[in-house]
């Protein structure tokens, strides 16, 4: 079996295994898996409204997946997407509320603010990794909590002590009257075009530029890259900043598209952590991230229909997603079995 096919088969098998184990869990807990998955299906594709909301859910997943995947390509594990998303969310909402500008300046400004905020938040772990060889996983986890507390304080300040800010100005909104009329007033917004454009941007940076080549080289082998004259430290920081910028944009999608405000949070959104799942499933390639985001975004939104339609807790989908990551992580054993299967066939 060619390597390419195996690379595609591993995530596909993982998804199937994840769904199967999910069905077993439902069966063992006394629920009807067929009714459960039917409710999930209807929750995703039921009518134009659910389709709109599904795409709306996919939008930030695309960006958080890109963020994780981009850092992975340089050999960095950015668990801090969640925190970068939160600061991006706040930055976009703040610009959206505080300024009065014509739309063609205001909207791009709010979006760029989110990307810059996310990038800056990721700059710190990048710098520490490059200069002091501090493991980025620990720093980004800690930065998540700092982001949560910091944005909560800032949001209270902007909202004059209240828990939720005023809505953003219309000139900074990604709201789409056209999509609303098409999807029975779902919250689907123009952000999906930005997310898809970023998929192209990531592909372009990685495949068509010298910078991208260097970033990937550092990911493959730091020492070889250094020997070849590349500035490893600069590339590590750059990779984290670009990754953080993607994460910040995911926050902008929530601030300018879905919610149109920022609010104090008791915990994390989970979009950043699910980005890890998206990136892993997509093998850290731009196109793979699209598939990963579509699958997980759809699963997450569709699951909301499961308690009503089949009386099954929504968490079943989180179990399935966690299992899928687990199986992808155990790719070695799936590859091993595929190879064995292949050898048997060749022997015949």
């Amino acid at each position: 079996m060619p390597n390419r096919v195996v690379n595609i088969l591993v995530p596909v098998i993982s998804v199937i295994l994840g769904l199967l184990v999910g069905a077993v869990v439902m069966l063992a807990s006394g629920y009807d898996p067929v009714a459960g998955y039917a409710a999930l299906w209807n929750g995703i594709f039921g009518d134009s409204y659910t389709i709109g909301e599904t795409i709306r859910t996919i939008t930030p997943y695309l960006l958080s997946g890109l963020a994780v995947a981009f850092a992975f390509r340089t050999g960095l594990f950015n668990i801090g997407v969640e925190g970068q998303l939160l600061v991006g969310w706040f930055a976009a909402a703040y610009v959206g509320i505080a300024f009065d500008l014509p739309m063609y300046i205001h909207l791009p400004l709010a979006i760029i603010a989110a990307a810059v905020a996310g990038g800056l938040w990721a700059f710190i772990p990048g710098l520490l990794k490059a200069k002091l060889q501090v493991h980025e996983v620990i720093v980004t986890i800690m930065m998540n909590y700092i982001a949560l507390h910091t944005t909560n304080v800032l949001i209270r300040m902007v909202a004059n002590g209240k828990e939720t800010t005023a809505p953003i100005k219309e000139t900074a909104s990604l709201k789409s009257a056209f999509f609303e009329s098409m999807t029975d007033f779902s919250r689907l917004h123009y952000g999906i075009f930005i997310a898809l454009a970023m998929v192209l941007v990531m592909w372009f940076i990685l495949e068509k530029t010298t910078t991208g080549f260097e970033l990937k080289a550092v990911g493959f082998n730091k020492h070889a890259s250094e020997y070849a004259g590349m500035n490893v430290n600069k590339n590590i920081i750059l990779s984290m900043v670009i990754s953080g910028a993607f994460a910040g944009l995911a926050g902008a999608m929530e601030a300018l598209g879905t919610f149109q405000y920022a609010s104090v949070k008791g915990g994390f959104t989970g979009i950043g952590f699910d980005g890890i799942a998206v990136a892993l499933l997509g093998a850290n390639t731009p196109l793979g991230v699209v598939f990963g985001a579509v699958l997980f975004g759809a699963l997450k939104f569709g699951a909301l229909n499961m308690p009503n339609a089949a009386d099954i807790p929504v968490e079943i989908v989180s179990i399935v997603i966690a299992l899928i990551i687990f199986f992808v992580a155990c790719g070695y054993i799936i590859r091993y079995f595929l190879e064995k299967l292949n050898k048997k066939k060749e022997a015949k």
């Binding site: 869990v25 807990s29 594990f77 668990i79 996983v137 952590f273 890890i276 799942a277 892993l280 807790p313 968490e315 079943i316 989180s318 179990i319 997603i321 966690a322 299992l323 990551i325 687990f326 992808v328 992580a329 155990c330």
Partner: peptide, 17 residues
Amino acid sequence: TISGVAINMLGVAIALF
């Protein structure tokens, strides 16, 4: 690290479910 992340997600999901 990835397996650990999966354990974290799975733990919360199983418990809440």
